[in-house]
Simulated scan of single mutants.
Amino acid sequence: MDIRTEKPEDVEAVRQVNIAAFERENEANLVDRLREIPSTFSFVAVQSDRIVGHIFFSPVVVEGKCSSNLSILGLAPVAVLPDYQRQGIASLLIREGLKECARSGFQAVVVLGHPDFYPRFGFIPASKKSLKCEYDVPDEAFMLLELESGALQDCSGTVKYRSEFSLCE
């Protein structure tokens, strides 16, 4: 399994992975809208020259009290072709993606996801760091991971996703 940065020639395969994984086009359309925005990261999992998984990170902001130079990303979506699910590909994508986000100087990542899955990567409920999601979601489903220890120490407020997310529904 090879994890690498998405290339321009991967766009259609990435789209198909997201459609197959979610059984709808919403997430694929979201990735298409976000792809050209600065400070985004898109990685693919490749097996036998076939793209079988995808993960995307895009910038989010905190409305409230935070350092003005705080750089946070939102992880969404992560997708794996149905025939390749439950083989650790999503976990590999997440681990490698988080490493690259940290190497690139981002201090934290938020995710809206399954509370039994993301803690294995170090994610905790965002409320433990005085942050909440702009969407009405269960507290335990909105999580964060500090990539830089103490980055969110004096931070509180509401995490806002890019406007492109509001078109995802």
Rank of each mutant, 00 (worst) to 15 (best):
M1Y: 08
M1G: 14
D2E: 15
I3S: 02
R4I: 12
R4N: 09
P8S: 08
E9Y: 08
V11H: 13
E12S: 14
E12G: 07
V14I: 14
I19W: 03
I19N: 03
I19R: 06
A21P: 00
E27S: 06
N29S: 10
N29P: 02
L30A: 06
R33D: 13
L34D: 02
R35L: 11
I37E: 12
S42I: 01
S42F: 02
V44K: 02
A45W: 05
S48G: 11
R50H: 08
G53Q: 06
S58A: 11
P59L: 04
P59H: 04
V60C: 05
V60D: 03
V61T: 15
V61M: 13
V61Y: 10
G64V: 11
G64A: 08
L70P: 01
P77K: 02
A79Q: 00
V80D: 00
L81F: 06
L81G: 01
Y84I: 10
Y84M: 15
Q87G: 07
A90M: 05
S91Y: 07
L93R: 05
I94S: 00
R95M: 12
E96V: 12
G97T: 06
K99S: 13
C101D: 06
C101K: 07
A102R: 15
F106S: 05
A108S: 08
V111G: 05
D116T: 09
F117L: 03
R120T: 09
G122T: 05
I124H: 01
A126P: 00
S127Q: 13
K128H: 15
K129N: 11
S130V: 09
L131C: 00
K132E: 11
Y135D: 14
Y135P: 07
Y135C: 10
V137D: 03
P138K: 06
D139N: 13
E140Y: 06
A141H: 14
A141G: 03
F142G: 07
F142E: 07
L152T: 04
S156I: 08
S156E: 14
R162P: 09
E164D: 03
S166N: 13
L167Q: 13
